[in-house]
């Protein structure tokens, strides 16, 4: 990340907010409560710091199909690859219809 430079003012603001050089404060799920993932790219419940949410996608539903289609956090977001192919059928545009997204029960 140290080789990336922000081009516009939004990028500069994000750089100020997110300390990219910060060492991870949590190593592994043991320090995160049960049910949270420690796969931090960028992270579901928290970002790589393990304690805050600066680096995660916001609002969360903007990128939820990135998690869903790729089966990225299968214990937190339904996976569209094998298990829940029709989960998002009623919600073609998550940015507009996210209120229709439901729980799944495995």
């Amino acid at each position: 990340m140290k080789h990336l430079k922000s081009l516009n003012w939004k990028g500069k603001m994000i750089e100020q907010t997110v300390d990219l050089e910060k060492e991870p404060e949590v190593q592994g799920l043991a320090l995160l409560p049960m049910g949270c993932t420690s796969l931090f790219d960028p992270g579901w419940e928290t970002d790589f710091s393990g304690t805050s949410l600066e680096g995660v996608c916001q609002p969360h539903y903007r990128d939820i199909y990135g998690c869903y289609g790729d089966c990225w956090w299968a214990a937190q977001v339904p996976d569209g690859l094998t298990n829940y192919g029709s989960w998002a059928d009623e919600c073609p545009v998550a940015a507009n219809d996210w209120r229709k997204l439901k729980y799944v029960k495995p």
Binding site: E45, A75, Q76, Y103, V104
Partner: peptide, 13 residues
Amino acid sequence: HITTVPDYVNNIH
């Protein structure tokens, strides 16, 4: 404390 996103896979983890 964190307040975070919902957990869509509604089961025991």
